[in-house]
Structures are given as C-alpha cells and as structure tokens.
Amino acid sequence: MNIFRILGDVSHLLAIIILLVKIHRSKSCAGISGKSQILFALVFTTRYLDLFTTFISLYNTVMKVIFLICAYITVYMIYVKFRKTFDSENDSFRLEFLLVPVTGLSFLENHSFTPLEILWTFSIYLESVAILPQLFMISKTGEAETITTHYLFFLGLYRALYIANWVWRYHTEKFYDQIAVVSGVVQTIFYCDFFYLYVTKVLKGKKLSLP
C-alpha cells in the first residue's frame, strides 16, 4: 500500500460521498446521470464478487462493502426517493453502446477464462467508460452544478492517483496488471477535458457552463 493508492481510494470515497450529500441536502438529483450510477453499481457488483471467495485484508473488505452500499443507495436516491427530480430527458446515452462492446471485450481479452475472472475484467472495462453518460449529459445540457463538478473532479483524481500507484508498484514490486493499467489510462483520458474546464472555470469561482 503506497501513498498514491491510499489517496486514490480516499479521493474515490470522497467523490461518492459528495454525490450522496448533494442529493440528500438538495433533495434533488438534477444534473446527475442515473445511467452512470447504474453502471458504477454494476461495476462494483461484478468486481467485488471475490468478497465471497478470498479475504485480502480488513481494509479491502470494508472499502468494498462501503462502495457497494453507497452505489446502491445512490441508485435508490435517483430512481426511487427523488425520482421526480431526475432529469431522464437529458440522460439519454444509449447504454447498449457501452455494454455490448465491454461484454464482448471481457470475453476476448482476460487473464483467464473463468466466470469470476471474466466478470472482474468486465468491471474493469465497464468502469473505464461508466462516466460517459454523465459527461454526455453535461455536454447536452451545457452546464453542471458546482457540487457535481467537485464530484467529477475527485472521481478523476482517483483515476490519476491510481496511475501514479501503478508506476510506483511497477518500480518497487515489478508488478503491473495490463488490463487494469490500459483501462485505467483510457478512463483518465476521458477526464482531461473536464479537468481543463474545472481548473479554468470552477476553481476561479465560475459555474461550469459550455459555450
């Protein structure tokens, strides 16, 4: 466990909590893509099946359970509790465009052809594109609430820190996981455009709005 990994996990947790607090306080999920949140719940569900098969550490187990619970609470808030505030009109990204290629790829390119390993690979590939419905929604409406941009910032920061973690692990342990690294880099690239807007607009006190 290195500093990048810990900060990455903290940043990931913070992003998830920011989103939950935003929805809870404003009693609204306006501007949030329910589809992205469904994908994240699916990501955690398919990745953390090893909770039933292997014990890694208390930290690992507790974090996995927290992520799972938070993901399902978020989906529940959007589709049940605050359903009336959900902007389904603008959450129009076609999920099959992500799910079909991701499913196909996880069968083709995995570490071993076993159910758990294929599902783990599926979750890695799916996570790399799961934010696209959210980014699509923002580009469609042309704006995002500042708190939503903080959520995206910490989610992107988590990805960037994981890359630093892999560089560190490669140099210290000669460890790298090609599937995780390639997907992780792809995922981080999706945040670059957003990072630029966050730094040039949000951090200068302006609302994120697209021309």
């Binding site: 990994r5 996990d9 990931h12 090893d50 292997t54 890694i56 550490s57 690992n60 974090m63 996995k64 992520f67 570490h111 783990w120 994981y162 973690n165 460890f175 996981d177 599937i179 995780a180």
Partner: peptide
C-alpha cells in the same frame, strides 16, 4: 499469479 495481486486494488 501476477494478475491475482491486482485484486488487492479497489
């Protein structure tokens, strides 16, 4: 194996 260690990440 090498990739199994990857599962310690979240």
């Amino acid at each position: 194996g090498l990739h199994a260690a990857g599962k310690d990440e979240l």
